[in-house]
Every structure is written in structure tokens, then in C-alpha cells.
Design a protein around this nucleic acid. Sequence first.
DNA 1: AACAGTTTCAACCGCTCCTTG
DNA 2: GCAAGGAGCGGTTGAAACTGT
Length: 364
Amino acid sequence: MGRAPCCDKDNVKKGPWSPEEDAKLKAYIDQFGTGGNWIALPQKIGLKRCGKSCRLRWLNYLRPNIKHGGFSEEEDSIICNLYISIGSRWSIIAAQLPGRTDNDIKNYWNTRLKKKLLGRRKQSSINRLSSTNPDANLAEDSSSSQALSNSALERLQLHMQLQNPISFYNNPSLWPKLHPFQEKMLLQSLSESSNPLMQYAFPSPQQGDEQKVDIYGQLVDSETLQQGHPKFSNSNVAGLENSLNAITSSDSSIPFTNGNHVMDLTTVPRAGMVEKSDAAAQPVVSNFQSELENFLNSKSSGFTAQEDQIGEFDCFKEMNGSRGGMNWWSNDFETKSASSNSWDSTSALQSEGMFQDYELGYTM
DNA sequence: AACAGTTTCAACCGCTCCTTG
DNA sequence: GCAAGGAGCGGTTGAAACTGT
């Protein structure tokens, strides 16, 4: 038995809001506030809308000082940086960007920023696999491609770009043990990426004579890449790395900065969605390592579907479903990496954090 | 001009967590 | 401690706008 619906779904209007509805809602909230009860609000003002719909409309469009579109590069960096560190916690990310809503950022990430940073490689990977790879019938399975587009892998890819891109992409021994299909797809995805660093690390035969472009689509040559591409050595990216180190470091005193934007990581987590009752013992944000581990262990539906088709794989037998595989990966990489223990994205956020800003962002 | 394919984004859905009685 | 109901969240959908042919 499911829970009772929050409203009478037969008697509520759905779809786009009219200017009249907007005006009613705005006028009421401006005058009386939400009254702490969104469910009852539409009845009070004679709107045939679900309370949740009113709340969403107010938070995303009607409340004052909302910005739409026109994301700056600084905002891009913040979004990217936080996504790498904490994943799709859009409300937390939104709290760091005044005037932005979680919905807006989520849409912006999914439709633009992700493509801008990771390149449009998924479809080409699938196409190429299906035309050249004997395993194409399996690889092009939608569940497989969905598994590869998992946010954990996106974050891995972005993370490595910022941390130590050349050495990581150039050294397969540093990579995690992937399922053969996953590894194959990851390799092809990386080699086909429009990102110059990946192209440098994995020059594609088809692309060998092509000029390389940076993440902003500007031309860049190999020498520049070896010496350090300006885009990756300017203060903006330095700020990003600094931020990443801060957010992943156990030393929460390191300021979380991005350029001249300094984020407050010294406040207490907000009570509510993020801080659980036993928050002191649990990471507030997902642990990237465990997320990746879950992905690799493929309890997800995506890989289960493949297992139905092709059975169990030796690599997973070897891993024996234990944490060993990922421990090898994380520990080994940590010792080899010159940078911080960047896999643990939890500590800074857990102990202190950006959650006060988050709270402020949602305080009306 | 017409059509198809792609992208964008507002809105909805269903879930989890919190609060309250 | 438990259950009910509300708030808030992330994922997804689908219509509109845009772009390419």
C-alpha cells in the first residue's frame, strides 16, 4: 500500500503556470508568506494546483532574486568542482550560487555543462562499437551505455582532469579494475573525448591529424599540452584544484575557494535532508570510492541485465564481491598520486561545510 | 516551406527524511 | 517507539524552441 497522495490529483491543474496563477501565488506569499504549509496553500488562495507544484513554482521562479541562464565561467567551475566532489547534490550546489536554483543547475549540468566538459562522446562510442566491435551487440545494449554514463565515471573523468590529468590518462596501471566491457567502453570514451588531455593520452588513429581543442573549443597543440595548457594552468583552474583539495582534504581549515569566491566550510551541517540523526558517524555526502565500487560491483539494474545475457565474468569472480578490488585501486592510486587523498570527498564536507550556505539559500 | 532530429527547461513524480502528535 | 503527513530532493518527462536538411 502506497501512501496517500498529497492532493486530489483529479482536481488539480497540471502543466505550465499562467500569469494569473503566478500573480495569485506571488501576491499571497508576498503578503502572508507560505504559512508553513504548502499543501493547504493552494486552497487558501483558490488555486487548483498541488501544493508541491506551488512550492516548486515559488522556489524556482517566483521568489525574488532568481537568476535564469547566463551562467558565468566561475559558476561553471563551481558547479563542476562540486559535482566532482559530492555528485548530484543539486540543492547543495545551488546553495553556493546565489540566485540559482537546484533545478536550474541540474538542467544546466545535464544539458550543457556536462557536454561542454566531457565532450559528446557517448553516442560516437556506441556507434563505433556497433560498427567495429564484435561485442557490439552487447556493448550497444542500452543498459551498458547507461552504466558507463554513471555519474561516478563522469566524476572520475572530471576529477582526473583536474588532479593529474596527463599521468593518469597515460598510465593504465593506475586505473581501476573494470569489467571488460566497461573498460573497453571507458577506453574508447576517453580516446574519443573532445578533451585535449584525453586526446593527448589516447591519440585516436582516426583523429591523428586533427587539431585538438580545449574544453572551450579553442585550438591547442600537443606541445602546449605537454607544457601545460593555459586553460589548465591559469588561476581559474588553480582555484579549482585548490577547491578540490580543500573539499577532499581532511583539513577543513583549507578555504574552499574558486578564484575570488571563498566558500565557508567552517560551519555546521544543516539539519534536515543532509544531516541524518547519526550524521556524526556517516558521511554527509556520498563517498566517491564506494559509489564507484558499487558501480563496479554492478548491483545496478544496468549490469544485471547484461549478466542475464552473458553470465558471470571471471573478473568479478576474482574480486569475489569483496572490497579488495577497490581497495587496491584506491590505495594504490593514493600512494602514487602526488596530490591529496582526493578520493575521500567526505571529510571536509562531513565535519564542516557548505551547509550553512545551503540553509541560507533556502531560507525565504 | 516543410519536415525531422535535437536541445532546452519547466514541471511532475516518487522517494526519503523530518516533524509532530 | 510508532505512524501520519508535510517538506525537500533528485530523476525523469514532455512540450516548445531551435537547428539542420
